[in-house]
Nucleic acid binder design. Structure first.
Length: 748
DNA sequence: TTAAACACTTAGCACTCCTACT
DNA sequence: AGTAGGAGTGCTAAGTGTTTAA
């Protein structure tokens, strides 16, 4: 067990090296010729795709027809398996011989691994009917709330002069409030789960919040066409304002964006407007643009009082629409606002950028709530599209969006039971994978020499998904979205094979756009068998052809779920992310370190995961500046240190020659000064490295979505690091279940 | 069997808010 | 008190994977 982990760890660290390099590659390429090469490459691929792509798909012939049977065993002999996995080979063979027995499958079922429900703080006896208990809890909560409110008003009334006692009092209150919050928290993880498919029993809410209606432009602000003032109809004017507001953005200069916008804008025009306005180039939005800028500026310059009023008004909306009642608990809604209309801006080269995202009316919205709850009222003069009572889903409202035709949902906040339970389950599945990952790895390594082409392709894909944490790569409709890929949808043009590269053999160079059009660039040494298979898959194919032409995500996932219930491609990402964190934390932190050092280690472990998952971000706009500022500070501190050192020397000299005890204490003080200076310098330098390493890496995504929070909680307990140091308030709320249940000895 | 519909998680960006500094 | 810049938050697009319908 340990050895396997170590081996895997080695692979990861190696990889970390290459990925770090990868980021710098990316940096340098941004200004150099690489970008050119890439855009050329992708342009070429599009050409290919449109000409040959959909009509004739090149399929890799069956293995049997290519290779005599003997040669496949030949390959086995000549190629040792990846070191990572060889050790386990024997054990696996035995395991694989026996058909997967039903009981083993049952053991693997998720529910069985969720810790037995504890009832530490259950209000009263077990025999009490659940509904009764709920009611009582709710009642208690209400009582508490009123108390809190009365207390809360107290300090506000006597705010004029803050005495020490009052400050102290406020502090106590804050602590009390925190404790109370903790007490009030719905400890759903201590309750029984509902029967299959049922997500709730009671659900009541106020419906979504609609954005304000469009306010027509004042007469002083005009739109011009060919230099002539034109008064637009409200509908056309609203869309014109959307465009005018974006004029500072680069994408309003893009051809696709402009064309899509103009086409959709014309649809909103009256026939007269349509016959007049035929060329976007001749449109002048400058007055509208100026007005918008002035508005933004004005908002910034509001007085404190006005800002407070605005904030209060917002809070009122949140209080009214931002919560729902789910099984007698008040739960926060994640996105209770209907998305306002505007111009669609997808990520990357999106073919639909610039299109009009229409205003959603209550008539477009489906409401979902409990049968026995009060139905939310539609805005005056409107009605809902439908009201349904489906307790097998978690959404409160939904509508169909007009750009892609997909459904948008209003759902609960991440700290809710519904989301939390799902999250917990996700990590349990990933932990389950830990127990059988070895045999799965062994199996796909065997499959690399299968006679069936599908199986080989599946094996190689799985190898990538496991080793590189690639996403599954569902197929997408061409022309509907930006051209991005994942593992199964990789095309020949996305990889380059190198027999030799930088002293490594069998290197695969990946270069493609993944989710959100984020570039994935990596050079990875792979085992020979994978390399040979890739060569085979690429034979007689055009750059725009699919690499895994016989494979898709459905096929892959079907196979995976037969290996372990609940196993899909994305579980590997979760598993590898979490196991990497755990192992990196073990490796990097020492109990004797101080808190700052421990946190740096935590960040580094987190960063290793972010790199693995390719979680990137645009370098902050102010990055160079703030880095330079920090460097200046460091330089200043260095000078100070040098000065302090010379002063110390001087003092020492004098103390030695004169032997005055006063001078001796001066020496001590100077010594302390030097030490302090050194410490501060070190701290800043560490900060600088941390920031530099983080320049293009986003830690948040993995922290929020891939790292089992129990690993972090256990680490905090072991290392005596307060949980607040690694999770902010929101994160603590989201991971309340983990913070509450995890002991120091937790192992992922 | 395939495609579309559906439900839900994951993702980066832009804004706002807060805090540590001057 | 004012400000820079980092942390936190809201937003919504873009994925994954299951279910339903044709």
């Amino acid at each position: 067990m340990g050895s396997e982990n170590d081996a895997k760890g080695d692979a990861k660290t190696k990889q970390k090296g290459t990925t770090l390099k990868r980021l710098s590659d990316r940096k340098s390429s941004a200004s150099g010729g690489d970008v050119m090469k890439n855009s050329l490459k992708s342009a070429k691929s599009k050409e290919k795709k449109s000409s040959a792509g959909s009509s004739k798909k090149v399929k890799t012939p069956e293995v049997e027809s290519l290779e005599p049977v003997s040669s496949s065993s030949d390959l086995v002999k000549s190629e040792p398996l990846d070191q990572d996995f060889t050790a386990k080979k024997k054990g696996l063979k035995r395991k694989r011989v026996k058909e997967e027995p039903a009981e083993e499958a049952a053991q693997l079922a998720v529910s069985s691994t969720l810790p037995v429900q504890r009832r530490k703080r259950h209000l009263s006896g077990e025999e009490e009917d659940e509904g009764e208990a709920e009611k009582r809890k709710a009642q208690k909560k209400r009582e508490k709330k009123t108390v809190k409110k009365e207390e809360g008003e107290h300090p506000v009334s006597k705010r004029a002069k803050k005495t020490r006692e009052e400050i102290e009092e406020a502090r106590r209150l804050k602590i009390k409030k925190k404790e109370e919050e903790e007490q009030n928290r719905w400890r759903w993880w201590e309750e029984e789960k509902y029967e299959d498919g049922v997500k709730w029993k009671f659900l009541e809410h106020k419906g979504p919040y609609f954005p304000p209606e469009y306010q027509p432009l004042p007469d002083s602000v005009n739109f011009f066409y060919k230099g002539e003032k034109v008064k637009l109809s409200p509908a056309a004017e609203e869309v014109a304002v959307f465009f005018a507001q974006m004029l500072d953005h680069e994408y309003t200069t893009k051809k696709v964006f402009r064309e899509n916008f103009f086409k959709d804008w014309r649809k909103e025009m009256t026939p007269d407007e349509r016959s007049l306005i035929k060329d976007l180039e001749k449109c002048d939005f400058s007055e509208i643009h100026a007005m918008h800028k002035a508005k933004v500026e004005a908002r910034k310059n509001l007085s404190k009082e006005e800002k407070r009023a605005l904030k209060e008004a917002n809070q009122k909306i949140v209080d009214e629409y931002g919560y729902c009642l789910l099984d007698h608990h008040r739960e926060r809604i994640g996105n209770f606002k209907i998305e306002p209309p505007g111009l669609f801006r997808g990520r990357g080269e999106h073919p639909k950028q610039g299109m009009l995202k229409k205003r959603i009316q209550p008539e477009d919205v489906i409401i979902n709530c409990g049968k026995d709850s009060s139905t939310p009222l539609p805005p005056a003069g409107h009605r809902w599209k439908e009201v349904r009572h489906d307790n097998t889903v978690t959404w409160l409202a939904s509508w169909t969006e007009n750009i892609q035709g997909s459904i948008k949902y209003i759902m609960l906040n991440a700290n809710s039971k519904l989301k939390g339970e799902k999250d917990w389950e996700k990590y349990e599945v990933a932990r389950k994978l830990k127990s059988c990952v070895e045999s799965i790895r062994n199996e796909y390594l065997q499959d690399l020499r299968s006679r069936q082409m599908v199986t080989r392709q599946r094996a190689v894909a799985l190898y990538f998904i496991d080793k590189l944490a690639l996403r599954a790569g569902n197929e997408k409709e061409e022309g509907e979205t930006a051209d991005t890929v994942g593992c199964c949808s990789l095309r020949v043009e996305h990889i380059t094979l190198h027999e030799q590269l930088d002293g490594n053999e069998c290197v695969v160079e990946f270069d493609f756009l993944g989710k959100d059009s984020i570039r994935y660039y990596n050079k990875v040494p792979v085992i020979k068998k994978v390399f040979k298979n890739l060569k085979l898959f690429m034979e007689n194919k055009e750059p725009g052809d699919e690499l895994f032409d016989r494979l898709n995500t459905a096929l892959l996932n079907k196979h995976l779920s037969s290996l372990m219930p609940g196993l899909t491609a994305k579980v590997f990402r979760t598993y590898n992310a979490s196991i990497t964190l755990q192992q990196q934390l073990k490796e990097l932190t020492n109990k004797s370190d101080n808190v700052a050092e421990k946190l740096l280690s935590y960040n580094r472990a987190n960063r290793a995961v972010a790199i693995l998952c390719n979680h990137q971000r645009a370098a902050p706009k102010t990055f160079e500046q703030s880095m330079a500022n920090l460097q200046a500070k460091i330089d200043a501190r260095k000078e100070q240190l040098a000065l302090a050192k010379t002063e110390l020397k001087q003092a020492k000299k004098e103390a030695k020659s004169k032997g005055d005890p006063k001078l001796q204490s001066l020496v001590e003080r100077k010594k302390a000064a030097v030490k302090r200076c050194e410490e501060q310098l070190l701290k800043m330098e560490v900060q600088a490295t941390d920031r530099e390493e983080n320049k293009q890496i986003a830690l948040g995504t993995s922290k929020l979505n891939y790292l089992d929070p129990r690993i972090s909680v256990a680490w905090c307990k072991n290392m005596d690091v307060p949980i607040e140091k690694i999770y902010n308030k929101t994160q603590r709320e989201k991971f309340a279940w983990a913070i509450d249940m995890t002991e120091a000895d937790f192992e992922f």
